[in-house]
Design a protein around this nucleic acid. Sequence first.
DNA 1: GTGAAAGCGCTAACAG
DNA 2: CTGTTAGCGCTTTCAC
Lengths: 331, 331
Amino acid sequence: MSITTKEIAKICNVSRGTVDRALNGRSGINSETRERVLEIVRKYNYQPHLIASSLSRGKSMSIGVVLFDLNNRYFSQLSNTISLAARERGYFTYISVSEKDHDSEMQILRNLASRRVDGILLLPAIQGKDYIDFLKSLEIPIVTTGNHLPGIHHVSINDFNAAFESADYISRRGYRRICFICPPLRKKGALEGRLNITSQDLRARGVRRFIDTNRGYQLEMLLQKDYVDRAVAMVRQGGEKIAFFCSSDVYALELLKRFREEGIAVPRDAGLMGFDNLDILAYINPRITTVSTSVEIQGRKAMDVLFKLISGETAPKLCYVPHEICPGETL
Amino acid sequence: MSITTKEIAKICNVSRGTVDRALNGRSGINSETRERVLEIVRKYNYQPHLIASSLSRGKSMSIGVVLFDLNNRYFSQLSNTISLAARERGYFTYISVSEKDHDSEMQILRNLASRRVDGILLLPAIQGKDYIDFLKSLEIPIVTTGNHLPGIHHVSINDFNAAFESADYISRRGYRRICFICPPLRKKGALEGRLNITSQDLRARGVRRFIDTNRGYQLEMLLQKDYVDRAVAMVRQGGEKIAFFCSSDVYALELLKRFREEGIAVPRDAGLMGFDNLDILAYINPRITTVSTSVEIQGRKAMDVLFKLISGETAPKLCYVPHEICPGETL
DNA sequence: GTGAAAGCGCTAACAG
DNA sequence: CTGTTAGCGCTTTCAC
């Protein structure tokens, strides 16, 4: 194991306090003593013991990141940005994945609290008053992104507006029949609202609002697990040409794949639009029309807010990052 | 802040030692006292202070994961598996990204050592004796995957064999002219070998060995940054039909994208094979032929070895995980 | 400018 | 079975 400040002190014939002053650039030390101490520190390759330091200081210089999925490309990019932003400020990140499991998510949060992380960036898969009370009881700064929790600081895209504008874009591409695809929403009632899908829900509301405020459009919703089969059937049935608006690029990819197998051409036989602008879309032919924000902006902004809270400053409860429509070849 | 064992002890009229025995299920305590203590523990929502515990126990119940890239899908899947495997054993993971930067990688490792992580899972982007000495000086169990470092425990695919077998597969699909694409290798000399690209290097050697041990095949290497342009030119030039064997699916995707734009049909005009079997390939048409191992197996196995080392057991220095060719439609 | 001492919260060894 | 004590290594306060 590495040498300690106690031993350094003995070697230098000074007290531990002085060693500490030298190491942490604190004032009240002769610059010669400082040099002498730092000399020995280098010589013996002293490594600070951050655990002891954390205990003493009461802060761990680490932040927790809780995601419900890391396999989703969007979240892995987000983690990357977050880790970098944290490291730039001397913080390390604990990244953990809940897999959308209620108990896991709670367990992870408790564990992070036990590790006395200085802040938590959370993509919640849970909602409800009890959960929010639990989060508050941790007494740790928390910023959410993705799904929203009332009363908790939140940084994200304005899902409602983004979906509204997407529907508008679809209409301007000449479609009068829009089918919104969002399988996560099927769980809405089933789980008595415990699952947090506010983000998806807002997207659905955004589309609906567009339909409600503009005459002459027809909206269908596909929330079932077998949405791919059903979408194929809808196209086969004919009638007014449909634009499938997917609440995530993932569903758009699945649709496109199946359409290709079935000989359904996009956009000849049906329109298609996604959400998130996953970077793998660059390799997909035809280019899928989608809407999104920059992951980097989102991650950076969320960390800005989190660090504000950590340092005791105030920050707005709600912060939207800009989004934009990314035109492709599928509408 | 949360209540401490000291306070619990006072409330229960017992000593801190007894509280500790109750909390950690240690023996030597009356079951009634235990119940009484745990009652209070629950009542006051006591949360263990893992930092204090770590300091006292000398282990932090955390492991560090150092990647040089998290945007690569393969690595994010790997991190996911690792986090899960760690959490199953009560460990938390610090995930950090070096972005292939030498100084970052060193800084991260030092920081993890300062945080007294119990083990490190490393995807190194550095090599060289100094670096290996440095790693050993940390006195922390380390397992690498991806790139290899002599003398350090390693779990990975057998890149040499996998590439050899891939070349063999390509030949059996009727190609006599193979072009191996591997841009990272262009840096081999330039950086005086500081950059660790052993994994890519082994793939190149595997292909070459196949060519050297079998008569009648022609091997070309494309290591330049503008490999896409050059590949297009090669196809245009005509002659014996080429199979492009890419050291990563990423390059195969780029090639396919460009070929499509240029009106080059695969496999009609040229063959194509990748490496890694990234899951996004499922959405790509035509299905790219590739070779790989299961990320899950690789992650699990690496963690098995790491935990063996952490608990003081011995483990083989080198452990290969099985690989297989994944036939697609591009050869 | 420097040293001594108390303390962060938990753990472990040793008495009783 | 339970209490006491002495740490883990660093930080911080208060004398000198």
